[in-house]
Amino acid sequence: MEKPELVTLTERQKKARRNRSIAIGLALAALVIIFYVATLAKSGSGFIGQ
């Protein structure tokens, strides 16, 4: 069986990927918080209701 060809990332590529991963993580976390808080606000429950 042939060995699969592996891609070796350069340091620069690794750094860029880490940078993108952090940005995606933060964006997703922000989205979750936005939808959670907005749902509370729209349902008018508690301290942030209209």
């Binding site: 990332l9 590529q13 990927r17």
Partner: peptide
Amino acid sequence: MSEATAGDYL
């Protein structure tokens, strides 16, 4: 593999 950073996407 891309070398694009979050800044490039921004």
